[in-house]
Amino acid sequence: MKLTRLLALSFAFVASVAAAADTGTNPAPRPRDWAAIARLPDWSGVWTPFVSDQDARIQRDPTPWREEVAPQIAAMVAEERAGRPRGLFIDCLPEGMPAWMLITHNAFEVLFTPGRVTLLGEMDGNRIRRIYTDGRGHPPDPDPTFHGHSIGHWEGGTLVVDTIGILPQSWLAVSEAVGLPNNGDMHIVERIHLDGPDRLVDDLEITAPRVLAATWKTSRIYFRQRARKYDIVEGVCLQGGMSSRQDEFGNWIYVPIPQEDGNPLPPK
């Protein structure tokens, strides 16, 4: 009897997910959809990156660059080591995927709502990733974006995320000065899970056939913070190239900061 009921419920759940996936509409969440969130692992708080481990993994999990692009990387590494880094993100466009997860120095938070997991971070205009967990598939030919189109599902306490539709210009970066545009057709699978009460791990498998000779497997670690001084703040990257001044009418405006040899100078 119980088994029959369980099977029926399971069928109803799968059917409802399938319906959400197939109808092309986003149904209003039901009380049981909200209740289901309470059974997910606790990812609340703010997550700060393990920056030293990011650096260490450049050596430990070497990126399998294709032979023909490796000289570009070698040149960037040499320039970085010589103190002449060519910053990849000086234009303040989003770090995008997978660079956000790989090299960020900034915090993010994770929100669970029915049918979706959302990552919200600081920097480059308050970065965001929307991961659909309502059972939908990828669109057949999504418009490319910096963060791509992400769908996810839960395997126990692990969120498995599949991302395609990433702009070819989006950097496959191993540091802020070393990396290449993925150049198209990138596919990322992530398994995001807790490996301790306050450590979130993202195991990434990055397939980028234009620049990588094989799928690159690496991981990144983030630490949970609950003190309110860690709450996410606004992070507008372009603001850093501006200085606050008053115009001739007394209005507060931003004006570009003068530069000399690449270094910002204070306004006169």
Partner: peptide, 18 residues
């Protein structure tokens, strides 16, 4: 003295520092 030239360094690598 190797001068760095280029666009605004709004979001740059810190490798320029020793």
């Amino acid at each position: 003295l190797a001068a760095i030239t280029g666009p605004a360094l709004a979001h740059h690598s810190f490798a320029m520092f020793d």
